[in-house]
Simulated assay, not measured.
Amino acid sequence: MFPSLNLFLQDPSNLTLNTRLSGKLEHILSRRFGVGIDVHTLQTRAQYDYLNRIGSMSISGKSAGIFASLYRFVSQGNIAPIGPFQRFGINYLRYELKDLDGRFFPDNRSVLPSGNLWKISYTLGTQRVFAEYLVLNLSMQVAWVGTILQSSWTPEERYLASTVSSRMRGFYALNGQIGIGVLLF
């Protein structure tokens, strides 16, 4: 079973509406192909249960990545970046954790160790240009998130990385996206 669906089935509260601020810069290389970079921020929460210490934590982070877009012709005159597209991307995510209940460590500190993740995504969507320079983007994205492990981690850090990785799989599993962009040239 897809890990994020498994996470949802274990706890239906993992299905939430999350918003994220993002920006993309894409360079069209041909009538059907473009490459680009994207950056975004993220903010969500997760629950923990470690050695009978139960609480919640805030996950905030930043992501940067690269992508390739393939555009397809539906009717005469469709050229990139107009019309249906597929996009393949890979991102590096850096996150920071804050213990909202102060229960994870016995000394009740609220700042938890930060970490890194990677994300591979596939997006299907369509784009339309209106008012000459504005672009409306409607798309659906599926993604897989993995942990960048470090051998020097303590058991607590491994548990947090596993919990965050599971939450991020749910966060990125299936996303509907609506975007407005600007054509620069």
Rank of each mutant, 00 (worst) to 15 (best):
I82R: 09
Q43A: 14
I66A: 02
T44F: 09
G146M: 02
Q76D: 15
Q150S: 15
I148W: 09
F88G: 01
M57V: 06
Y71L: 00
G65C: 12
D38T: 07
L117S: 04
L5E: 04
T163Q: 13
T163D: 04
D99F: 00
P155Q: 07
S152M: 14
G61W: 05
S13D: 03
M1F: 14
Q76Y: 13
T154V: 10
M57A: 07
S63T: 13
S22G: 14
V164N: 06
I37M: 05
I178A: 10
R32M: 04
M1L: 08
L183C: 08
P155D: 13
L51M: 10
I148M: 07
A161G: 05
T154G: 05
L100K: 04
K62F: 06
V164W: 02
G77T: 15
Y172T: 08
L7G: 10
T154Y: 03
N137H: 05
Y48N: 09
S166C: 08
R72L: 13
G61Q: 07
L51A: 01
R103Y: 14
F105V: 01
G83M: 04
N116P: 06
I180T: 12
A173D: 02
L160N: 06
E26S: 14
L93V: 15
M140R: 00
H27R: 02
N14L: 03
R32E: 03
L15V: 15
G179Y: 11
A143R: 12
A46H: 11
S4C: 13
L29F: 12
I28S: 02
Y95F: 13
G61H: 07
L97M: 09
W118T: 12
P155I: 15
L70E: 07
T147M: 10
A143G: 12
V164E: 02
S166E: 09
G34I: 15
K98H: 12
Y172D: 01
L183M: 14
R169V: 02
N18M: 05
A161L: 13
T19I: 14
A64V: 15
R158D: 06
N6M: 03
Q10F: 09
D99Q: 05
G115Y: 08
L112C: 00
I28P: 07
V182M: 09
Q127D: 00
N91V: 06
L117V: 04
V164T: 04
R94H: 13
G89L: 06
Y95N: 01
E132P: 00
G102F: 03
L149M: 09
